[in-house]
Each structure stands twice: as C-alpha cells, then as structure tokens.
Deep mutational scan, measured.
Amino acid sequence: MTYKLILNGKTLKGETTTEAVDAATAEKIFKQYANDNGVDGEWTYDDATKTFTVTE
C-alpha cells in the first residue's frame, strides 16, 4: 500500500510517499525520514487517506 507523509516543519515543508505492508511499517519509515531531516513534532494519522502528518 502507498502511504503519504505531510511535513509541516519549521524549516522543512512538503510531502513524500512510501510503499509499506502496513501503517506501522510506514510510520517507522516516515519517523526516520523526519528525524533525518530535523523535523520533530506532533504526529497524526488518517486511516481513511493513509496519510501521516507531522507538525512542529
């Protein structure tokens, strides 16, 4: 399945997608991606749209 991440960081904003077997796997990938890019904030997930959002 395709999952989407919306980044609302102070210095980085944008979107990315990943292919993952489930939401938990996608979350791990996205949290590593956000960490690698210096984004740390409040996480939400919308199962209907398979979208994670992180807001600093």
Rank of each mutant, 00 (worst) to 15 (best):
T2Q: 15
T2E: 12
Y3T: 00
Y3D: 00
K4W: 11
K4A: 06
I6Y: 08
I6L: 10
I6W: 04
I6A: 05
L7Y: 15
N8I: 15
N8D: 13
G9N: 04
G9S: 13
K10Y: 14
K10N: 15
K10W: 06
K10E: 11
K10D: 10
T11V: 15
L12R: 03
L12A: 10
L12G: 08
K13L: 07
E15K: 05
E15Y: 09
T17Y: 15
T18P: 01
T18D: 03
E19V: 14
E19S: 09
A20T: 13
V21F: 13
A23Y: 06
A23F: 08
A24K: 12
A24P: 07
T25E: 12
T25R: 06
T25P: 02
A26W: 01
E27Y: 15
E27L: 14
K28I: 06
K28S: 13
K28M: 12
K28Y: 14
K28A: 10
I29T: 12
I29M: 09
F30W: 02
K31W: 08
Q32V: 10
Q32S: 07
Y33L: 06
Y33A: 03
A34E: 01
A34S: 08
A34M: 05
A34F: 03
N35P: 02
N35G: 10
N35V: 15
N35T: 15
D36I: 10
N37T: 11
G38N: 15
G38T: 04
G38L: 12
V39P: 02
V39W: 10
D40M: 12
D40L: 06
D40T: 14
G41R: 01
G41K: 02
G41L: 03
W43N: 00
W43P: 01
T44V: 11
T44H: 06
Y45M: 02
Y45N: 01
D46G: 02
D46Q: 05
D46L: 04
D47Q: 08
D47F: 07
D47V: 13
A48R: 06
A48H: 09
A48K: 15
A48G: 13
T49P: 02
T49A: 14
T49E: 09
K50T: 04
K50Y: 07
K50E: 03
T51V: 15
T51K: 03
F52A: 00
F52H: 02
F52G: 00
T53F: 06
V54L: 10
V54P: 01
T55I: 07
T55K: 07
E56I: 05
E56V: 06
